[in-house]
Computed example of a mutant assay.
Amino acid sequence: MSMLDKLKGMMKGHEDTARQGVEKAGDAVDEKTGNKYQSQVDTAQQKADEQIDRQPPTDG
Results as ranks from 00 to 15, higher is better:
17 T>W: 02
44 A>C: 09
31 E>H: 09
55 Q>W: 00
5 D>C: 03
7 L>H: 03
31 E>I: 04
36 K>W: 01
16 D>K: 14
52 I>G: 11
8 K>N: 10
9 G>E: 06
40 Q>M: 13
46 Q>N: 13
56 P>H: 10
1 M>E: 01
35 N>E: 07
5 D>L: 09
2 S>G: 09
25 A>C: 13
21 G>P: 00
39 S>D: 11
3 M>Q: 10
4 L>A: 11
36 K>D: 04
54 R>G: 14
32 K>E: 05
14 H>L: 05
12 K>H: 07
7 L>I: 14
32 K>H: 05
30 D>I: 07
42 D>A: 14
12 K>A: 12
32 K>C: 01
53 D>I: 06
23 E>A: 14
23 E>S: 11
28 A>F: 07
19 R>L: 07
40 Q>C: 05
27 D>R: 15
25 A>G: 10
44 A>E: 08
52 I>C: 09
49 D>R: 15
43 T>I: 08
22 V>A: 14
32 K>A: 13
13 G>F: 01
25 A>R: 11
53 D>L: 08
15 E>S: 10
38 Q>G: 08
29 V>Q: 07
48 A>M: 13
37 Y>T: 13
52 I>S: 11
16 D>E: 14
22 V>G: 05
37 Y>P: 01
20 Q>F: 01
19 R>W: 03
11 M>H: 05
22 V>K: 07
12 K>P: 00
53 D>G: 10
40 Q>H: 12
19 R>C: 03
47 K>R: 15
26 G>R: 11
6 K>M: 10
4 L>T: 08
59 D>H: 04
9 G>C: 06
12 K>D: 00
60 G>K: 11
46 Q>G: 06
58 T>Y: 02
14 H>V: 02
4 L>H: 02
19 R>T: 04
59 D>K: 12
20 Q>Y: 01
32 K>I: 06
5 D>Y: 02
51 Q>V: 06
33 T>G: 09
54 R>C: 03
25 A>I: 08
14 H>P: 02
35 N>S: 15
34 G>N: 07
46 Q>R: 14
28 A>N: 07
33 T>Q: 09
18 A>S: 08
36 K>H: 08
41 V>G: 11
8 K>Y: 02
4 L>G: 03
40 Q>V: 12
35 N>L: 05
43 T>E: 11
